[in-house]
């Protein structure tokens, strides 16, 4: 499903003149099916408001621009939000705090109950099992446990299983690795890539963590003051140093190093992953050495 936003506007407390806050000021953005999309921006840039539009948690109407997600026209009043929410899964910051049921199974099953009330018990069981196994947990071992007895990382996985159980085509994650230790973070990112390869077509990450988006997303949108300041590949976005500075963001580590090297007159072309960067630096090093040798020989 393709997401297209045209001149999307949103104002908090629109009716009150004093308290009105323009969160979105004409957002134009297209997210293709299959993207691993990153949305970055300072606090208050409108990125959270924007993603909450995607599954109708913040309803919009035709007066505030146009928003379509696949065949759903959200700016149309008759939009079926329930069907939409089954297709657009949303994982909020610290999703483990939304667990409530007595067992892991019941918690994961929650979404199915309301999205697809006509499923048989067996069908539901299969779907829950698939979801729990997709997030890398042992179904038999965990299904009857209380979600509150699990570790933090496991809780987060269960919460995500509860979202992907309804087989969404788009998965939106708000600060997905906040509060995880480095190892947990690594595992979680690889889980996202597995999801992207297997079940969920489009993944959208909202984050403050520049390294996370630079290394994992194929496309990035930079939000600033309720507008999209820049869209492009990580390389396009993070080599536009001036623009990044203007939006009040930091460069990811690799982009920062590349910039520093550039200032010293060393041009390195990288796609902003650590591996690639190291490879390129070594290549440059070899080149320079070779040149010196040549110079020495002459």
């Amino acid at each position: 499903m393709r997401i297209v936003a045209e001149e999307l506007n949103y104002v908090y407390s629109e009716k009150s003149k004093k308290l009105a806050v323009h969160a979105l000021n004409g957002v134009n953005l297209t997210i293709e099916a299959g993207d691993f999309f990153g949305i970055i921006g300072k606090t208050g840039s409108g990125k959270s408001t924007f993603v909450q539009h995607l599954n109708g948690l913040i309803p919009t109407d035709s007066k505030h621009g146009k928003l379509t997600v696949g065949e759903f026209v959200l700016s149309n009043k008759k939009c079926d939000y329930k069907a939409l929410r089954a297709k657009v899964g949303m994982v909020f910051q610290y999703p483990e705090y939304q667990l409530f049921a007595e067992t892991v199974f019941e918690d994961v099953e929650f979404g199915l109950k309301s999205f697809y009330p006509n499923l048989t018990k067996e069908e539901k069981e299969v779907m829950v099992k698939t979801a729990i196994e997709t997030v890398g947990l042992n179904y038999e071992e965990i299904k009857d446990k209380s979600p509150f007895d699990l570790s933090g990382g496991q809780k987060r996985r269960v919460a995500i299983a509860g979202v992907i159980v309804s087989k969404p085509e788009i998965l939106v994650l708000d600060e997905p690795v906040a509060g995880l230790d480095p190892q947990g973070k690594k595992e979680f990112i690889s889980l996202l890539h597995t999801l992207h390869k297997t079940t969920v077509k489009t993944i959208i990450i909202v984050s403050h963590d520049m390294n996370l988006v630079a290394e994992n997303c194929n496309k990035i949108a930079v939000f600033c003051d309720g507008k999209v300041a820049k869209v492009g590949t990580p390389k396009e976005v993070f080599t536009d140093y001036e623009n990044i500075k203007k939006t009040g963001l930091d460069l990811p580590l690799i982009a920062f190093l590349t910039q520093k090297l550039q200032e010293k007159g060393i041009e390195i072309s990288t796609n902003l992953t650590l591996e690639n960067f190291i490879k390129e630096v070594f290549k440059k090093h070899e080149e320079v050495k070779a040149k010196q040798r040549e110079g020495g020989n002459r």
Partner: peptide, 13 residues
């Protein structure tokens, strides 16, 4: 507000 949104996203009505 946050929890309601999270559960709504999971289909709560």
């Amino acid at each position: 507000d946050r929890i309601i949104k999270a559960q709504k996203a999971r289909g709560a009505d």
